[in-house]
Design a binder for these strands. Structure first.
Length: 586
DNA sequence: CTAGGGTTAG
């Protein structure tokens, strides 16, 4: 900057290149005011800046996050070229101003400027929906720019964000040569859309193609392990993490993997070792502890988070409320809910209300739960009603339950879970005819409950147990073992939950005795056969655990002196010594 | 002078 002043002193004009070098310096140093000074120099009289130089200035303001100033400068540009337009579009995309980004693309086309690969890779990120995406994709193909790796990875990414994995896959498959980022995009696409299997397969393909994983790759791989609850594979990835030191995002993904795989010891250890923790690290631990049934610890971590000066966000508070509702801490929950706006400036959203309905409902305060729903500033959605419905089932409030179920069916008429809960409610109050009616309606509408599935990882291989599918190689042996355990447990006082209509509907079974062979029971027995005694048996399942399996597992864990962890879609059950971390409250 | 990939919930 001294150079600039001295040149001015000698009545010399800097040329474009000098100016752009100066601007680079300002950017590197974060010197906003000096950058503005250069800007004024560029436009002082006698000097006609070329488009190229104004673009450099534009970019500078964008990098300094001064969109307004960039916009002003842009509006006054006499000759806008493709770079000028693209710089603005990229800025809008980054700021998540989707409308503006798209609007500028249209203005650019009207102005007769042809977009290039830079333009497309930027504007794709701002694509607000599938309809626009299809149009964009068509223009890209027409322009021939779809062969550019940047455009491709952007396409893969945005298709995946809209859940269009097939299209993402197609684009990936058409590629002759993919670079690391493109591999990361496609692996991420599957990992982020709960297709962990495919993500891991692609990861192997990437390694076979000769690419070395980087931090983004491993984050995606961890996420795939998280989704599949592959603790052993996740540990393997952990070993490779050392190369990347303290990458915060990667560390956060690691934390989450350990939490979601039900290994809080590992999660706590990793958390303690982190040099830097952000709101996501803390939230991950709060949520992880809460979901695993360690509500008190979750609230303790939340306390430490506040002390450490990290401000909780929307998601943190969901974890806090979840902890309260699953531990029956009604007063704490109320307190956090009421104070989140005042203390942290977070407006409670539908999901927070959902937690509160759950909290009150589980605690049997159904009237208060209804009052809260009526008081919401949102229209109650199906999730809220389903929460209430669940509480009605637990507390055997048939009338309110039926009311809630009707609300859900209005909003979401084909949800199998609702019919199941409704018929369970009727069954609970011995209204068999009504229960049967619900079943018939389901049949007529062709609504089927997904079959119960449980998965267990043994020697880094995933074994699946699916209701009504006995294709597992050792099935005969497993059933034999299971029956032995059942009869031994019966000798110790185990009585299978004979309320089989309830179970029957919950798991989509036909046979009365199939309750005894729910998929998690099979997976647990297989785990006991395959893993040494000191190893924890970890099961992941797609449906919530039923009452009978819960009792069975508690007793089995005690009788065989085993640690068993079952992860259902909502939370975790740690069985040890005849008890479960959920406190029989789920 | 301008562009693509990774973390908490749902």
């Amino acid at each position: 900057m001294n150079a600039l002043t001295s040149m001015q002193h000698h009545h010399l004009w800097a040329d474009s290149l000098t100016y752009s070098e100066l601007i680079k310096c300002c950017l590197a140093r974060g010197a906003v005011e000096q950058a503005r000074l250069v800007h004024r120099h560029v436009f002082s009289d006698g000097y006609q800046p070329k488009t190229f130089l104004i673009n450099v200035l534009l970019n500078m303001y964008v990098k300094f996050d001064l969109l307004e100033e960039a916009r002003k400068l842009f509006d006054h540009m006499p000759d806008k070229n493709v770079v000028s337009w693209t710089t603005m579009i990229a800025a809008f995309s980054n700021a998540n101003l989707k409308d503006k980004a798209l609007h500028f693309l249209i203005l650019m086309l009207r102005d007769g400027v042809t977009p290039n690969m830079f333009t497309y890779s930027s504007v794709l990120r701002a694509c607000p929906g599938l309809h626009n995406l299809t149009q964009l994709h068509c223009s890209i193909i027409k322009s021939g720019l779809d062969s550019d790796v940047f455009v491709r990875s952007a396409l893969i990414d945005i298709y995946s964000k809209w859940g269009e994995l097939q299209n993402a896959q197609l684009i990936f498959n058409e590629m002759v040569t993919a670079d690391l980022v493109v591999w990361n995009s496609i692996i991420g696409a599957f990992a982020q859309n709960s297709e962990g299997d495919e993500a891991l397969t692609l990861f192997l393909g990437m390694k076979r193609a000769g690419f070395d994983a980087n931090h983004a790759t491993l984050t995606n791989v961890l996420r795939a392990c998280t989704g599949l609850a592959l603790l052993e594979s996740g540990r393997q990835v952990h070993v490779h993490l050392l190369k990347f030191g303290q990458d915060l995002i990667l560390q956060n993904a690691l934390l989450d993997m350990y939490c979601k795989c039900g290994s809080l010891e590992d999660a706590n250890r990793a958390f303690a070792r982190m040099a830097e923790k952000d709101v996501i690290s803390w939230s991950t631990m709060v949520i992880g502890l809460a979901q695993n049934g360690f509500s008190r610890e979750a609230l303790e971590v939340f306390g430490k988070m506040k002390t450490s000066g990290i401000k909780p966000n929307y998601i943190t508070m969901l974890g806090v409320l979840f902890a309260c509702s699953h531990a029956g801490l009604v007063e704490d929950g109320r307190h956090y809910f009421q104070s989140m706006q005042k203390l942290f400036g977070i407006d409670p959203g539908t999901e927070h209300y959902g937690c509160m309905v759950d909290l009150l409902g589980r605690a049997g305060k159904l009237d208060e739960a209804v009052k809260l729903i009526n008081k919401m500033r949102f229209k109650p959605d199906a999730v809220i009603w389903r929460t209430l419905l669940g509480a009605c089932r637990v507390h055997r409030n048939t009338d309110l339950g039926v009311y809630a179920a009707k609300q859900i069916l209005n909003l979401d008429p084909n949800n199998a879970g609702t019919y199941v809960l409704l018929s369970n409610i009727y069954a609970n109050s011995q209204r068999w005819d009504d229960a049967e009616e619900v079943r018939k309606t389901m049949e007529q509408k062709g609504i089927k409950k997904e079959p119960g599935c449980s998965w267990i990882e043994v020697n880094k291989h995933l074994h699946a147990f699916i209701m009504g599918d006995d294709s597992h190689q050792q099935m005969d042996e497993i059933i034999r073992e299971l029956n032995q355990y059942i009869s031994r447990l019966k000798g110790l006082g185990y009585v299978p939950d004979t309320d089989f209509i309830l179970q029957d509907l919950e798991e989509g079974e036909e046979k009365e005795d199939s309750l005894l062979h729910h998929s998690e029971k099979l997976a647990i027995v297989f785990g006991m056969m395959s893993l040494t005694k000191e190893k924890t048996i970890r099961i992941r399942k797609n449906l919530r655990i039923c009452g009978d399996c819960h009792i069975f597992t508690k007793l089995l864990a005690k009788m065989e002196n085993r640690n068993i962890v079952i992860r259902d879609p909502i939370r975790y059950h740690h069985f040890q010594n005849g008890l479960c971390s959920c406190g029989d409250y789920w």
